[in-house]
Protein backbone atom coordinates (compact mmCIF):
# COMPACT_ATOMS: atom_id res chain seq x y z
CA UNK A 1 0.00 0.00 0.00
CA UNK A 2 2.74 2.46 1.00
CA UNK A 3 4.72 1.43 -2.10
CA UNK A 4 1.84 2.59 -4.29
CA UNK A 5 1.62 5.94 -2.50
CA UNK A 6 5.38 6.41 -2.64
CA UNK A 7 5.30 5.87 -6.40
CA UNK A 8 2.43 8.37 -6.69
CA UNK A 9 4.55 10.85 -4.73
CA UNK A 10 7.41 10.24 -7.16
CA UNK A 11 5.08 10.87 -10.12
CA UNK A 12 3.91 14.14 -8.52
CA UNK A 13 7.49 15.29 -7.98
CA UNK A 14 8.47 14.40 -11.56
CA UNK A 15 5.44 16.33 -12.85
CA UNK A 16 6.55 19.33 -10.77
CA UNK A 17 10.09 19.34 -12.18
CA UNK A 18 9.00 18.63 -15.78
CA UNK A 19 6.34 21.36 -15.59
CA UNK A 20 8.88 23.82 -14.21
CA UNK A 21 11.26 22.99 -17.06
CA UNK A 22 8.37 23.43 -19.52
CA UNK A 23 7.51 26.88 -18.15
CA UNK A 24 11.15 27.99 -18.38
CA UNK A 25 11.61 26.62 -21.91
CA UNK A 26 8.34 28.17 -23.10
CA UNK A 27 9.30 31.54 -21.59
CA UNK A 28 12.64 31.49 -23.40
CA UNK A 29 11.15 30.38 -26.70
CA UNK A 30 8.96 33.51 -26.78
CA UNK A 31 11.51 35.99 -25.47
CA UNK A 32 13.72 38.72 -26.94
CA UNK A 33 17.50 38.41 -26.52
CA UNK A 34 19.83 41.31 -25.75
CA UNK A 35 22.89 42.19 -23.68
CA UNK A 36 23.01 43.99 -20.34
CA UNK A 37 26.21 45.59 -19.12
CA UNK A 38 27.44 43.96 -15.94
CA UNK A 39 30.40 43.72 -13.60
CA UNK A 40 30.75 40.24 -12.14
CA UNK A 41 32.35 39.39 -8.83
CA UNK A 42 33.14 35.78 -8.04
CA UNK A 43 32.39 34.31 -4.69
CA UNK A 44 32.46 30.53 -4.51
CA UNK A 45 29.86 28.42 -2.87
CA UNK A 46 30.45 24.72 -2.21
CA UNK A 47 26.73 24.07 -1.77
CA UNK A 48 25.44 25.85 -4.85
CA UNK A 49 28.36 25.17 -7.16
CA UNK A 50 30.45 27.92 -8.73
CA UNK A 51 28.70 31.14 -9.48
CA UNK A 52 29.36 34.79 -10.02
CA UNK A 53 27.34 37.53 -8.44
CA UNK A 54 26.28 39.98 -11.12
CA UNK A 55 25.91 43.70 -10.56
CA UNK A 56 24.24 45.96 -13.10
CA UNK A 57 24.99 49.62 -13.62
CA UNK A 58 22.26 50.34 -16.13
CA UNK A 59 19.25 48.66 -14.55
CA UNK A 60 18.19 51.17 -11.89
CA UNK A 61 16.79 54.29 -13.55
CA UNK A 62 15.90 57.42 -11.65
CA UNK A 63 12.49 57.74 -10.05
CA UNK A 64 10.74 56.13 -7.15
CA UNK A 65 8.05 53.50 -6.70
CA UNK A 66 5.71 52.75 -3.84
CA UNK A 67 5.42 49.16 -2.66
CA UNK A 68 7.52 46.06 -3.20
CA UNK A 69 6.94 45.56 -6.94
CA UNK A 70 8.14 47.69 -9.83
CA UNK A 71 7.87 47.68 -13.61
CA UNK A 72 11.05 48.79 -15.36
CA UNK A 73 11.11 49.93 -18.98
CA UNK A 74 14.10 48.48 -20.88
CA UNK A 75 15.09 49.90 -24.25
CA UNK A 76 17.73 49.50 -26.90
CA UNK A 77 20.81 51.65 -26.14
CA UNK A 78 23.59 50.66 -28.56
CA UNK A 79 25.15 47.80 -30.47
CA UNK A 80 28.38 46.04 -29.57
CA UNK A 81 30.41 43.51 -31.51
CA UNK A 82 31.95 40.66 -29.53
CA UNK A 83 33.96 37.92 -31.26
CA UNK A 84 32.62 39.02 -34.63
CA UNK A 85 28.98 38.95 -33.63
CA UNK A 86 26.89 42.09 -33.16
CA UNK A 87 24.49 42.27 -30.22
CA UNK A 88 21.95 44.86 -29.09
CA UNK A 89 22.60 46.29 -25.63
CA UNK A 90 19.58 47.38 -23.61
CA UNK A 91 19.32 49.59 -20.57
CA UNK A 92 16.61 50.75 -18.15
CA UNK A 93 14.99 54.11 -18.83
CA UNK A 94 12.05 54.27 -16.43
CA UNK A 95 10.56 52.58 -13.39
CA UNK A 96 6.94 52.82 -12.25
CA UNK A 97 4.40 50.91 -10.19
CA UNK A 98 3.18 47.88 -12.18
CA UNK A 99 -0.41 49.15 -12.17
CA UNK A 100 0.59 52.31 -14.03
CA UNK A 101 1.86 50.47 -17.11
CA UNK A 102 -0.64 50.68 -19.96
CA UNK A 103 0.83 48.80 -22.90
CA UNK A 104 3.15 45.94 -21.85
CA UNK A 105 3.80 44.68 -25.36
CA UNK A 106 7.30 43.41 -26.05
CA UNK A 107 9.20 44.41 -29.19
CA UNK A 108 12.72 43.92 -30.54
CA UNK A 109 13.71 47.33 -29.19
CA UNK A 110 12.07 47.48 -25.76
CA UNK A 111 9.78 46.01 -23.14
CA UNK A 112 8.73 46.05 -19.49
CA UNK A 113 10.54 43.92 -16.90
CA UNK A 114 9.14 43.07 -13.48
CA UNK A 115 11.29 43.65 -10.42
CA UNK A 116 11.04 43.34 -6.67
CA UNK A 117 12.04 46.35 -4.61
CA UNK A 118 14.44 45.12 -1.93
CA UNK A 119 15.54 47.97 0.26
CA UNK A 120 16.99 50.58 -2.08
CA UNK A 121 17.64 48.25 -5.00
CA UNK A 122 15.70 46.47 -7.71
CA UNK A 123 15.85 42.69 -7.82
CA UNK A 124 15.16 41.16 -11.26
CA UNK A 125 16.18 37.62 -10.30
CA UNK A 126 19.27 37.78 -12.54
CA UNK A 127 21.91 38.22 -9.85
CA UNK A 128 23.81 34.97 -10.39
CA UNK A 129 25.64 33.24 -13.17
CA UNK A 130 26.49 29.59 -12.57
CA UNK A 131 29.46 28.09 -14.34
CA UNK A 132 31.22 24.75 -14.47
CA UNK A 133 34.53 23.64 -12.98
CA UNK A 134 36.01 23.57 -16.50
CA UNK A 135 35.03 27.18 -17.19
CA UNK A 136 36.21 28.43 -13.80
CA UNK A 137 39.86 28.86 -14.80
CA UNK A 138 38.91 30.75 -17.94
CA UNK A 139 36.65 33.12 -16.03
CA UNK A 140 39.12 33.60 -13.19
CA UNK A 141 41.81 34.67 -15.67
CA UNK A 142 39.72 37.60 -16.91
CA UNK A 143 40.98 40.94 -15.71
CA UNK A 144 39.91 43.79 -17.97
CA UNK A 145 37.43 44.36 -20.76
CA UNK A 146 33.67 44.68 -20.96
CA UNK A 147 31.27 42.16 -19.49
CA UNK A 148 27.71 41.58 -20.63
CA UNK A 149 24.94 39.25 -19.64
CA UNK A 150 23.05 37.70 -22.51
CA UNK A 151 19.54 38.13 -21.16
CA UNK A 152 16.05 37.31 -22.33
CA UNK A 153 12.88 39.24 -21.63
CA UNK A 154 9.58 37.39 -21.91
CA UNK A 155 6.18 38.81 -22.67
CA UNK A 156 5.24 38.28 -19.02
CA UNK A 157 8.01 40.66 -17.90
CA UNK A 158 10.41 37.96 -16.69
CA UNK A 159 14.12 38.64 -17.17
CA UNK A 160 16.42 35.61 -17.38
CA UNK A 161 20.17 35.12 -17.78
CA UNK A 162 21.25 32.93 -20.70
CA UNK A 163 25.01 33.38 -20.80
CA UNK A 164 27.92 35.61 -19.95
CA UNK A 165 29.60 37.45 -22.85
CA UNK A 166 32.83 39.41 -22.53
CA UNK A 167 35.09 41.44 -24.69
CA UNK A 168 38.73 41.46 -23.58
CA UNK A 169 39.35 44.71 -25.41
CA UNK A 170 38.27 47.84 -23.54
CA UNK A 171 35.41 49.63 -25.32
CA UNK A 172 36.43 52.39 -27.70
CA UNK A 173 35.27 55.80 -26.51
Amino acid sequence: MSGKWLRLTLVAQIIFFVAWAGVEEYGRANAVEFLLETRPVDPRDLLSGHYMTLRYTSLDPEGSVEGVRAAVRLEFEKEVTVDGRTWPVWHAVEKVEPGRVGDRSLSSTGGWADATVTGSRLDFGIDRFYFSEARKEELNSLRGGSFYVLATLGGDGTLRVKDLVWDREPPTP
Partner: peptide, 17 residues
Protein backbone atom coordinates in the same frame (compact mmCIF):
# COMPACT_ATOMS: atom_id res chain seq x y z
CA UNK B 1 16.81 15.29 -3.22
CA UNK B 2 14.17 17.88 -4.22
CA UNK B 3 16.50 20.60 -2.91
CA UNK B 4 19.28 19.24 -5.12
CA UNK B 5 16.83 19.19 -8.03
CA UNK B 6 15.81 22.80 -7.46
CA UNK B 7 19.50 23.75 -7.33
CA UNK B 8 20.10 21.92 -10.62
CA UNK B 9 17.13 23.61 -12.30
CA UNK B 10 18.44 26.93 -10.96
CA UNK B 11 21.84 26.24 -12.57
CA UNK B 12 20.42 25.05 -15.87
CA UNK B 13 18.13 28.09 -16.24
CA UNK B 14 20.48 30.53 -14.45
CA UNK B 15 17.85 31.45 -11.87
CA UNK B 16 18.57 33.74 -8.97
CA UNK B 17 16.34 34.46 -6.04
Amino acid sequence: LPLAGIGLWGQVYQLSG
